[in-house]
C-alpha cells in the first residue's frame, strides 16, 4: 500500500519562502515596468504636443506682415498671452486688396486653459496644442519673432521628482514683413 506522507513542515516553509521571494521579485519587476511605461507614455504625450509646433507655426507665422502702406492694422500685435498676425496676401489678381477678407489673412494665437488656441478670421478660438504651460512671444527684433513654448505632462510622473516642463524657443523670420510695403503711384 502506498503511503503518501506529504511535505514536512520544514519543506513547506522552505518552499513557501522561496516562492514568495521569486514571485515578489517578478511582481516588483513587473510593477517597475508598469511605472516607467506610464512615465514614458506621459513624456511622449507631452512632447508629441510640442512637436506639432514646428509643423504648424511656419505655415501660420512666416507669411505675416505683407501689408500695404496704408493698411489700418499692424502686421504683428503682441499681447500678454496672445499674438495677432495680419497679412494682406490675397486679393483680386493675386495682389493685396487692403482688406483682411480671407480667413488665413488674420490669425490670433493665444494660450488659454493649458491649450494653445488659434482663431482664424472671424471664427472662434480652437485648441491646437494641449498641455501648454507657458507661451511667450517676443517681437522686439522684427522681422524676427521669438516664441517660447513650455509644455507639461498631464499629471506628475510616478516615482521621480524630475522637472516636467519642457521649454523650447522657436525663431521665425517673417520673409514678407514690411511695416509699409511702398507708396503706390496708381
Amino acid at each position: 500500500m502506498l503511503k503518501n506522507e506529504g511535505f514536512s513542515l520544514l519543506e513547506t516553509m522552505v518552499v513557501s519562502t522561496i516562492s514568495i521571494i521569486v514571485f515578489a521579485g517578478f511582481f516588483s519587476i513587473f510593477g517597475q515596468f508598469q511605472t516607467w511605461s506610464s512615465n514614458l507614455n506621459l513624456l511622449l504625450e507631452r512632447d508629441e504636443n510640442l512637436w506639432l509646433a514646428p509643423l504648424l507655426f511656419p505655415r501660420w507665422i512666416t507669411p505675416t506682415g505683407n501689408n500695404r502702406w496704408d493698411s489700418a492694422w499692424s502686421g504683428v500685435t503682441v499681447q500678454a498671452d496672445s499674438i495677432e498676425l495680419n497679412s494682406d496676401i490675397h486679393g483680386p489678381g493675386g495682389f493685396p486688396d487692403s482688406q483682411l477678407s480671407s480667413s488665413f489673412e488674420t490669425l490670433v494665437l493665444r494660450s488659454s486653459r493649458f491649450n494653445l488656441q488659434v482663431k482664424s478670421g472671424t471664427g472662434s478660438f480652437q485648441p491646437v496644442i494641449k498641455n501648454i504651460a507657458d507661451f511667450q512671444v517676443d517681437s522686439r527684433d522684427l522681422p524676427l519673432i521669438s516664441i517660447l513654448l513650455s509644455t507639461a505632462t498631464d499629471r506628475p510622473l510616478l516615482a521621480t521628482q524630475e522637472n516636467l516642463l519642457q521649454s523650447t524657443r522657436f525663431l521665425f523670420f517673417l520673409r514678407n514683413y514690411r511695416s509699409n510695403l511702398f507708396l503706390e503711384n496708381l
Binding site: D141, L171, F173
Partner: peptide
Amino acid sequence: IVELWNQIEQSRA
C-alpha cells in the same frame, strides 16, 4: 533640429 532651425532663421534675418 530646433537649434538648427533657429540658426537658419537668425541667419536669414
